[in-house]
Amino acid sequence: MTESLLTRLVLRLATAGVLVFIYTPLVLVAVYAFNPTIAQTWPPEGFTTEWFVTAFRNPDVLDAFWSSIIAAAFATAVALVLGTLASLAVQRFAFFGRETVSLLLLLPIALPGVVTGIALSATFQTLDVRFSLATVVLGHATFCVVIAYNNVLARLRRTPRSFEEASADLGADTWKTFRWITVPALRTALLAGGLLAFALSFDEVIVTNFTAGPATETIPLFIFRSIQRPNQLPVVNVVALVLVLLSVIPVYLAQRISEDAAGVAR
């Protein structure tokens, strides 16, 4: 089937249109950050960098950034440990209910976020657990585990068992084999899974809003709560631009990891 010249032209224009649709808001983020006025009208009436100074000195912004980083780091760590353990069990052993494990781990992503949020919130309330950054981490861990699990499981399936058997034949015990054979084979899978889990946690707001409580503020929660306060908008503009720029880091790293992984496979 060859598409007619007209079809090709229409498809090309449609693709260009969608790219404009996708990137216009992201480009505007950069413009708004330099907007001098508090009212966010278009076009901006001038150019200023003063809001950057204001934003970087704002203790709420800095605290929120720290909270997000700490929450994401802990959630990622929990996800990597639990995800790796579960994937080793599922890949190395045959047991009753093995198929159910994947389904169970997938549940927090398959269910609408608001259901996970209210379920955790109801439990914390019923058990009288105080909301804090720790409850945020627990909430994030639920949907981050499956990311690590899927990445590690896929890698385990592609890594021949013969490497580990050779290591055992050469006299290494379980721990040595794990340390020198299994972990290096999983390295890029752990990196990729960890990266995705970190990004997911850093960005999450739907569940976080249920598990954070008024005293805890992550960066997405800071933006969410600031939108209702017009005076804060110039600072939010700066935070938004910083976040868009930061999102280049995981894209770059993901690219590097996939190149790395391709190198290993070859």
Binding site: P25, L28, F224, A240, V244, S247
Partner: peptide, 26 residues
């Protein structure tokens, strides 16, 4: 190009649309 916006913050995207769609906005 299609994948990249998925890494950009969800709330930043909503916030920017909030600004764009608002009165006298973009």
């Amino acid at each position: 190009a299609i994948l990249m916006p998925l890494w950009a913050s969800y709330l930043v995207k909503i916030y920017t649309w909030h600004t764009m769609l608002g009165g006298n906005g973009f």
